[in-house]
Lab assay of single mutants.
Amino acid sequence: SKICLVCGDEASGCHYGVVTCGSCKVFFKRAVEGQHNYLCAGRNDCIIDKIRRKNCPACRLQKCLQAGMNLGARKS
């Protein structure tokens, strides 16, 4: 099975251009559409994995963007 390129959980498919799990898919959509201005309490290098993905939305969003997630991406 495929793994989420953001948190490493089991992926549910290709979302916004990137193979991700459902949790990261929903997080990314809400983060971008809600125009959240997340700030990292650390050094913008928090570990984002299945267990810690909820700890720092700033670093999670950064990881989504680095993976290439794009709200305008067509479903493939």
Rank of each mutant, 00 (worst) to 15 (best):
C24L: 02
C24F: 00
D9H: 10
K75N: 07
A67L: 13
C14Q: 14
I48W: 08
E10N: 10
M69A: 09
F27C: 01
I51Q: 15
V32S: 12
G34D: 13
S76G: 08
C59W: 00
F28A: 03
Q62A: 12
I47Y: 05
G42H: 13
V26W: 13
V26F: 15
D9A: 15
C40L: 01
N70Q: 12
V18K: 06
R43E: 13
C40T: 01
L39M: 14
K25S: 11
A67G: 08
R43D: 11
R43T: 13
G72W: 05
V26M: 09
A31S: 12
P57Q: 07
C24V: 00
Q66W: 11
I3A: 04
G22W: 07
G13A: 06
V18R: 08
C4S: 01
R52F: 05
V26I: 14
N70D: 14
P57Y: 08
G42R: 09
D45T: 06
A58S: 14
G22C: 04
C4E: 01
Y16S: 07
L71F: 03
D9N: 05
K2R: 07
A67W: 09
V19I: 07
L39V: 13
A41P: 06
V19L: 09
A41V: 09
A11P: 13
I3M: 04
N70Y: 13
G17K: 09
V26S: 15
V18M: 03
A11M: 05
P57A: 10
D45I: 06
S12G: 04
Q66N: 05
R43W: 08
G68R: 04
A67K: 05
H15Q: 05
C59V: 01
L39C: 14
T20I: 07
G8H: 03
A58Q: 15
D9V: 13
K29R: 12
L5S: 08
I48P: 05
K25D: 07
C24E: 00
E33A: 03
C64S: 06
K2A: 08
I51K: 07
N44V: 03
N44C: 11
V32M: 15
M69H: 02
C46G: 02
F28H: 02
D49H: 03
N37P: 07
A31M: 15
H15I: 05
Y38K: 11
H15G: 13
C46V: 01
I48A: 08
R53I: 07
M69W: 02
L39I: 10
R74D: 13
G34K: 06
C21R: 00
I48H: 04
K2V: 05
K63N: 09
Q35K: 14
N70T: 10
A11R: 07
Y38W: 10
K54I: 12
A58G: 09
S76N: 08
A58Y: 07
Y16N: 05
C4F: 01
K75Y: 09
H15K: 14
I47H: 12
K25R: 09
N44G: 13
C46Y: 01
G17C: 10
K29I: 14
N44L: 04
I47M: 08
F27P: 01
M69Q: 03
K29E: 06
L39A: 07
D49E: 10
D49G: 06
S23R: 07
R43G: 13
N37Y: 07
I48R: 05
C24Y: 01
K29N: 06
